[in-house]
């Protein structure tokens, strides 16, 4: 028999062929979704699919492993673990602020609607600032939560210099810059408690970062170059 012969009693309508075609991914998109649903509801059919998938999965033995990029697990962990900086930014609805304030507001609304933000204690940022160098060689994201008086700060781009520190300053109105502290050397998330007396002065003020000796300016006055600055905006 040649393969082209049509065999009269050939029947491809059985579940076996359907389960196999589904397992191979040969069905059209719509059918794919329907069959996926059936596999979950129809125990017998689901078992067929599972059998096929189990058989076919052995074919992956012939695929050479490829090491994924080294930093990928860190990325996964930062999405997965609730206390990771990325999740905190998400919960604050601030991360998208990098894309523009409009998008941030939209995402915040979406986040609230779909319950991404923890419902019991909705930590919502009141203000945000993108503290950036002119050429974006240093970008630090800041978000302020009014309820707790906490300013979250994390470096998104750029790096520090060995034996030097990045110091954060609040410049409100015509007042002299006030130090808010030295940022973490590795750029990881910092939580800074803003003194009660300063909280009213944040709106419309500027946050700036200067290059200072290790541990920060010894005099309480900025001594080094201004590396980055950004306006505090209301979310």
């Amino acid at each position: 028999m040649t393969d082209d012969t049509i065999i009269p009693d050939e029947d491809f309508s059985g579940d076996d062929v359907l389960a196999a075609e589904y397992s191979l991914g040969l069905l059209e998109a719509e059918e794919m979704v329907q069959v996926a649903r059936r596999a979950r509801i129809d125990l017998e059919f689901g078992a067929l699919v599972e059998q096929w998938q189990d058989h076919f999965s052995a074919l992956t033995n012939e695929v050479e492993p490829v090491a994924p990029p080294k930093n990928l697990f860190k990325k996964i962990a930062s999405e997965a673990y609730p206390d990771s900086p990325k999740r905190i930014w998400h919960q604050l609805g601030v991360l998208p602020a990098l894309l523009g304030a409009g998008a941030a507001a939209l995402v915040l609304i979406l986040a609230l609607q779909f319950g991404v933000v923890n419902p019991p204690e909705p930590t919502v940022a009141t203000y945000a600032a993108r503290i950036a160098a002119e050429d974006d060689s240093l970008v630090v994201q800041a978000a302020y939560v009014n309820d707790t008086g906490t300013l979250f700060v994390e470096r998104q781009a750029g790096s520090g210099v060995a034996e030097r520190s990045h110091e954060l300053w609040l410049i409100a109105g015509d007042d002299a810059p006030l130090s808010l502290g030295v940022l973490a050397a590795d750029g990881s998330l910092d939580e800074i408690t803003i003194p009660a007396a300063l909280r009213d002065r944040l709106e419309g003020a500027t946050l700036a970062i200067t290059d200072e000796p290790l541990g920060g300016s010894p005099t309480g006055v900025a001594t080094g170059a201004i590396l980055a600055a950004g306006l505090i905006t209301v979310l």
Binding site: T60, V63, E64, P65, V66, A67, P68, L72, F73, I76, A77, A80
Partner: peptide
């Protein structure tokens, strides 16, 4: 989770790639 990733990610990445 980290151990599982270390042990299996290269195989899975190969398959996906």
């Amino acid at each position: 989770f980290e151990a599982l990733y270390s042990a299996t990610s290269a195989k899975l990445f190969g398959i996906i790639l």
